[in-house]
């Protein structure tokens, strides 16, 4: 990339594949599973986490020299909680239906391990610009997994993407349904998210042998 140095673009791009927060660092699993039955919810959640983690990382990084070590968890929690309240209010104002689908999981962004994990591991020891890139990179990696899982679950579970019927109409029996295809309703249920995620991990580790654990 022209704008960013090699080190900076590594911060942005690594979490998308090799250092993915969900599949490698094992963070942020809770919301990655619960809200991915619809692609729209996954995208909105991904954008929210990018916003919270990006801004949060910058704020913590700017304050890193004045936070006393004993209360740093509380300071981090306060920063995240404030940002999440803002995100929640914006969602309720502009997209009420979606905020009902996401329900408590917007609030649970506060305890999303990725955010606290990146604060501790990066923002407390690095400058604001790098922290911003690291935050956006990790949240984008998390968003990528959310979108992949959401894509398969919505497509196979209800035959729609973003609410648009892409495989034909199941009631009118057009498109793919004409030859007898039926939606796999099971994909909309929560356990399938776990199994789809397991398969993603399987694919990723088969392609990159270094990631295999014993």
């Amino acid at each position: 990339m022209g704008l960013l140095s090699k080190k900076d673009s590594k911060l942005l791009l690594d979490p998308l594949t090799d250092n993915n927060p969900v599949t490698i660092q094992v963070l942020g699993i809770c919301s990655a599973l619960a809200i991915t039955a619809q692609l729209k919810a996954s995208v909105v959640m991904a954008v929210s986490v990018i916003a919270v983690l990006g801004v949060g990382n910058v704020v913590i990084s700017l304050m890193r020299n004045v936070i006393p070590s004993k209360i740093r968890i509380i300071v981090q929690l306060v920063v995240v909680a404030a940002l999440v309240i803002i995100v929640d209010q914006v969602l309720k104002a502009y997209s009420y239906e979606l905020s009902k689908t996401l329900s408590v999981f917007v609030g649970l962004i506060i305890t999303n391990c990725i955010i606290m994990g990146r604060f501790e591991a990066f923002a407390l020891a690095n400058g604001p610009w790098q922290s911003f890139l690291d935050g956006v990179g990790n949240a984008a990696g998390y968003g990528l997994i959310l979108i992949i899982v959401g894509f398969f679950r919505e497509l196979l579970g209800s035959g729609t993407l973003f609410g648009f019927k892409v495989l034909g109409d199941p009631i009118e029996k057009t498109g793919l349904y004409a030859i007898g295809y039926e939606n796999n309703g099971f994909m909309l249920l929560s356990p399938m998210a776990l199994i789809v995620l397991g398969i993603i991990i399987w694919v990723q580790r088969s392609r990159n042998k270094d990631l295999i654990e014993d």
Binding site: L194, G198, W202, E213
Partner: peptide, 20 residues
């Protein structure tokens, strides 16, 4: 367990089956 599934992968799948 297949090498690429060891550890995290198989745990996810087992948890999924338990959830079912």
């Amino acid at each position: 367990v297949p090498p690429a599934l060891r550890g995290l992968g198989i745990t996810f799948i087992i948890t999924g089956l338990m959830a079912i």
